[in-house]
Amino acid sequence: MQIECVEVSPLPMINTDLEEEGGRKFPAVVEEFHRKISRADSFLFASPEYNYSIAPPLKNAIDWASRAPNVWADKAAAIVSAGGNFGGGRAQYHLRQTGVYLDLHFINKPELFVYAFQPPAKFDADGNLIDAEVKERLKQVLLSLQKFTLRLQGQC
């Protein structure tokens, strides 16, 4: 399994006025993002909760990649979140709702909601995951995503 972190912060806020040639050409940074998403076999979304939803930069990225052609369609995905209480869960469920329109296929289990603000510490000062139990649970999410991806591709 190869994992590539795709940065979404360079993307401009979605604005169809930035499109050219009748919506067939996007700004260069969006074109590159489209290519990366298009080449991926599946996706692992990680987002904190903002007002019962996903982080605005993630929603912006989702919207850009859904512009024709929708490069999310018919691909497998999983979601993980870290936050306080059940906020991350709310974000996950909202992302699942968005994924319905995008034709994304999310794994159902296992789910991973990390309660980041309760001891013991789950992350170090640099944001690296240090909790062994959470690492194992994340591994199980990734293995499930891999298996589901191969099944959707007709490889198992």
Rank of each mutant, 00 (worst) to 15 (best):
I3N: 10
I3C: 07
I3L: 15
V8E: 04
V8S: 11
V8M: 10
S9P: 05
P10L: 00
P10G: 01
L11P: 06
M13C: 11
N15C: 15
T16M: 13
T16G: 14
D17A: 11
D17W: 03
G22D: 14
G22H: 09
R24Q: 15
A28C: 10
V30I: 09
E32D: 14
H34I: 14
S38G: 11
A40R: 04
D41W: 14
S42P: 12
F43M: 12
F45H: 13
F45W: 10
Y50G: 01
N51F: 00
Y52F: 03
A55N: 11
P56I: 01
P56F: 02
P57E: 12
K59A: 03
K59V: 00
N60P: 05
D63N: 11
W64H: 02
A65S: 12
A68E: 05
A68C: 04
A68Y: 11
P69Q: 05
P69S: 10
P69V: 09
N70E: 13
V71H: 13
W72Y: 07
W72V: 03
A73L: 00
K75G: 10
A78S: 10
I79Q: 03
S81F: 11
A82H: 06
A82I: 08
A82W: 04
G83A: 07
G84N: 03
N85S: 06
N85T: 01
N85R: 11
F86E: 03
G88D: 03
G88F: 00
A91G: 07
Y93S: 05
H94A: 13
L95V: 05
R96A: 02
T98G: 07
T98E: 08
V100L: 12
Y101A: 10
D103G: 04
H105A: 00
H105Y: 02
H105T: 02
F106N: 01
N108P: 00
K109N: 04
K109T: 04
K109I: 04
P110L: 07
E111W: 05
L112I: 06
V114Q: 02
V114E: 02
Y115A: 04
A116F: 01
A121C: 10
A121D: 12
A121H: 05
K122T: 06
K122V: 03
A125R: 12
D126Q: 15
G127H: 04
N128G: 09
N128H: 15
L129K: 04
L129T: 07
L129D: 09
D131I: 03
D131L: 04
A132K: 11
A132D: 15
E133G: 02
E136D: 00
L138D: 00
L138F: 12
K139P: 00
K139F: 10
Q140D: 04
Q140T: 03
S144D: 08
Q146I: 06
K147E: 15
K147D: 14
F148Q: 01
L150Q: 15
L152N: 03
L152V: 07
L152K: 03
Q155T: 13
C156L: 12
